[in-house]
């Protein structure tokens, strides 16, 4: 019940946001196609195989990558395993309550997971050490720590940045068939590096990177995951409203035009340095 204090926007404020948009202005002075300031920092968690801390405006997300050895899934014996998890923890916002993952935590994780999987960000086929028996399991855990809107894009950036800078132990197989984990660390085999771009629909306006207040007022949002070749590798519409087909295409074009700028914030891919 107390979240109502933080999720019900005062009517005059809502009116102000809507009328500003009619004039082409956003509540924080941005243009419709403008991101807030994006900062990406990697290697922030020593115990993780890879990690990143991303901020978009006041929104802040930490992602960590951990790897462990395990058995593969029965139907993909020659592939490693990717598991993405996210939790909207109470420190990030007065509207988040402690407890098991709810539909928002699950949606966030699964959209990021699909974007990574569809673009083969992790080359899972290169993570089978002994097909059918030993593969690498890569865990990507995403924790927003400050929620000012657009957790999706910040989480996507954090997850990818963490993966790009992840290093896993080199593993060799001894003469008697045992796995030997060496001191040396090698980069995680990386394929693509998708970026996630979220567009909110507020009235007739389509604006990118909604801040929290804009999220309270928006009719709906749509997120596109865009890979390096400008393919769409995930789409997720969210919210109680709807989009016309034209609006979907306009939003997609907006996302495609902004993807390069977002991608420029990512660390280089391990294969780039060869």
């Amino acid at each position: 019940m107390s979240e109502r204090v933080h999720t019900v926007i005062p009517a005059p404020r809502r009116e102000a946001i809507l009328s500003m948009l009619k004039r082409g202005e956003r509540v924080d002075g941005r243009r419709a196609d403008e991101y807030r300031e994006v900062r990406v920092e990697t290697g922030v968690v020593g115990n993780a195989e890879g990690s990143a801390r991303v901020s978009i405006g006041h929104t802040k997300v930490i992602a960590g990558v951990k790897a462990s050895l395990g058995s593969p899934f029965p139907d993909t014996p020659d592939k490693g395993i990717q598991i993405v998890y996210a939790e909207l923890i109470p420190m990030a916002s007065p509207i988040f309550e402690p407890g098991p993952p709810d539909e928002n935590d699950v949606e966030l994780a699964r959209v990021i997971d699909r974007g990574l999987r569809s673009s083969s960000t992790i080359k899972l086929e290169e993570l089978a050490l002994v097909p059918g028996k030993h593969v690498w399991r890569i865990y990507i855990d995403i924790y927003p720590i400050d929620h000012d809107g657009n957790l999706m894009d910040a989480s996507g950036l954090a997850a990818v940045a963490a993966l790009l800078t992840s290093k896993i132990p080199k593993v060799s197989i001894s003469s008697n068939g045992n796995l030997v984990m060496e001191e040396e660390r090698v980069p995680l085999p990386i394929g693509d590096a998708p970026v996630f771009v979220t567009i909110a629909k507020i009235g007739d306006a389509l604006v990118v990177d909604p801040c929290y207040e804009e999220e309270l007022v928006m009719d709906a949002r749509i997120t596109f995951a865009i890979d390096k070749e400008d393919n769409v590798c995930a789409i997720q519409k969210g919210g109680r409203g709807s989009f016309s087909a034209d609006e979907v295409v306009k939003a997609l074009d907006l996302a495609l035009s902004l993807a390069p700028e977002l991608r420029s914030k990512l660390p280089p891919s391990p294969s780039d340095s060869h």
Partner: peptide, 12 residues
């Protein structure tokens, strides 16, 4: 459109 999702790879 009230639902749109995707996985895989699609061009614009």
């Amino acid at each position: 459109i009230t639902l749109i999702q995707a996985d895989g790879r699609f061009t614009r």
